[in-house]
Nucleic acid binder design. Structure first.
Lengths: 226, 226
DNA sequence: CCATCTGAAACTGTATACTGTTTGGGGGTG
DNA sequence: CACCCCCAAACAGTATACAGTTTCAGATGG
């Protein structure tokens, strides 16, 4: 945020990570150190090290032919939802207790922006506003280890989140959930925030299950067969 | 485990990580790529990359003068205990449901070995047996993401764990906790495993708080002053 | 005897070069 | 038309070199 005056490796690392989080890297893009190095006028080494760090953190997946977004099996998504159910209600509760007026104002604006996309249907704007909302309440979580853990696994499922947000029903559910959470944060009501967050995560899991079943109905059959 | 036939970077990475987990790296050791490279007869680059990956995963901390064990502030340890309370009861419950006879046998042996060190006072053996116990039940957790998350933060607090184990009272408490957990795993009793694990973690937190207060009583005063 | 300055040593960061290994495609064959 | 083989390009891994930065010991002055 405040210090982009670092060395090449860190600058490139943060740059690529930001692009992943903004959904600018597509599933079939291959990130190769030599190409990125040539673009930016540096050597392979800092780019290689940035890419390998992103891979070790789960943002990318190293193949024998460049780096790509991780291939997210539905099972792995379900596993992350278990983690979310266990951690995020508590995280939301502690954020509700310690968030300040400025954070609440930012979240209020973000929820307004997200709600506006229900009409405009601007998925990119919806995604941006949701990121602001999430990063703001997460920033209010005092427990750094907890915050980092949540950020880590959320980064890994970014692409799935982005896909879910394109669904109209999920869109409505997410905005409703954000409104409920915002209300709890405004009242500094830890218990309400915890309950709202648990519902929010479980609704997200339902949306994912529904979309996954629609997208590949054969997966159900293979489960029945197996 | 099965494939040490990798490239230099991965081999060195796994080697150093194993040494950290065995407690062979001391707090005042400084790991420098050039020195390790010379020892092993390779160039700096694979060693540097291994060390940086270990640092990004929290096993090490990069300074301007080599890599060292992370400097664990008590506050950070307390944060990890919050994570443990949230995740490990659930993890133990799911391990109790899915662990097989072989895993139970290994854990039984590990608990016996750990109990024997109550008499022999062999801290290194106690540490080894505890690692076997933990890794075995963690291996029975079906949720890979959950397992990886737990492994990640446990690695970061290794040095503190090692210090706690030197305390006679904590030694007894840990062995008792392991016996209780083993009993729950043997009966495949998920609820008991969850409750035992919650108690185990909270007792660990109490032990840490006690030892920390004994080691630096001035920290309490500074808190009162601030 | 203590503070401060200074330069060499010790490291980190980056560039460049070279060596394996994998891959995808062109050309040949059935 | 399908299959296989081989090779050149693409890419990962490693080595070496060098530049920039930090640290510390010893020299210098008060």
């Amino acid at each position: 945020m405040s210090a982009p005056r670092q060395n090449h490796r860190i600058r490139i690392y943060e740059d690529i990570r930001a692009r992943i989080q903004r959904g600018e890297i597509r599933r079939d893009d291959r990130l190769v150190d030599t190409a990125i190095a040539a673009e930016r006028g540096v050597s392979r080494m800092p780019v290689r090290e940035a890419l390998m760090q992103l891979a070790s953190e789960g943002y990318l997946e190293g193949t024998s032919r460049g780096f790509t977004l991780p291939n997210m099996e539905p099972e792995r998504i379900r596993e992350v939802f278990v983690l979310r159910r266990l951690l995020e209600p508590y995280a939301a509760a502690s954020a509700a207790q310690s968030c300040d007026a400025q954070a609440i104002a930012v979240m209020g604006q973000a929820v307004e922006d997200a709600a506006a996309t229900l009409v405009s249907d601007d998925v990119t704007e919806f995604y941006r506003a949701s990121e602001v909302f999430r990063n703001t309440w997460l920033g209010a979580v005092p427990n750094t280890e907890l915050r980092q853990t949540i950020l880590r696994y959320m980064a890994q499922v970014q692409s799935v989140r982005f896909a879910t947000m394109r669904d109209p029903l999920a869109h409505q559910i997410i905005v409703d959930g954000q409104r409920g959470l915002l209300e709890a944060f405004r009242r500094h009501d830890a218990l309400a925030a915890s309950e709202r967050m648990l519902r929010f995560v479980m609704q997200g899991e339902e949306s994912f299950a529904r979309l996954n079943a629609e997208a590949r109905p054969e997966s159900l059959q293979s489960k029945r067969a197996g």
